[in-house]
Amino acid sequence: MSDSPVITQGALEAAHHEHPPYQRHHFETIGQQNDATNFAMWLFLLTEIMFFGGLFTAYLIYRNWYYPAFVAASHQLNIVWGSANTAVLISSSFTMAMGVWCAETRRKSGLVLALVLTFLLGLVFLGIKTIEYSEKIEKHHVPGFHYSIQSFVNPASDPVAAAYGDKPLALDMAGKTELYFFLYFAMTGMHALHMIIGIAILGYMIFRARAGAYTSGHVTFVENFGLYWHFVDIVWIFLFPLLYLISRHQ
């Protein structure tokens, strides 16, 4: 069994390289490891785009078909809470970016602070989302659960619709608001799910960061999580105008 025409030479030097402890054995260099994991994260975000893409397609089609229903239904969303949430999320992206910077420049307490802030802002976002959802539940605007079209066939009875001066929708069109609310819940729900996963990972990261795991040069995990967090943020940046703003003045 001596016939082993493995291509010899080269790589000998590589074998004697000093490895940082966090370099996984199957990578030649730490640079390759960082490259590979970053690239993987970008690809993963690409799959996420395709995932949300299905919902955006549905939204665009139905908005086109049932325009009046979508306008009236979107008036039911609370623009104040929505804007507040956008601000919260953008701030959290800022703190996350600061966290990545702190990790790169090996500032442990700065990193922990940034992560904690991001964590808290994430929770605030979810809190506001809960308030918004409970408003919908009270008004029976949750599709499939005793959905009520009262606000749309009789806008005068609904203070929000009345404030917008909505005209009553015909029964069949009013029924289509359920589709809007379904898309609203599906898209923001899917987004919130991503937030919850992100917050859980953040909790784990805070724990590890306090032990100094990310401030000894191994920053890819923080960087990649940063990418994820910014992605979730960007999804919201698309959701907010599409769901809240686009029909405000109609």
Partner: peptide, 21 residues
């Protein structure tokens, strides 16, 4: 694959909640 995933999620939601999509 993610597009299949979302299509199946919608089927499951349609079945459980009756969203109408």
């Amino acid at each position: 694959t993610p597009v299949l995933a979302i299509a199946l999620v919608l089927v499951v939601l349609e079945r459980t909640v009756g969203i109408g999509v």
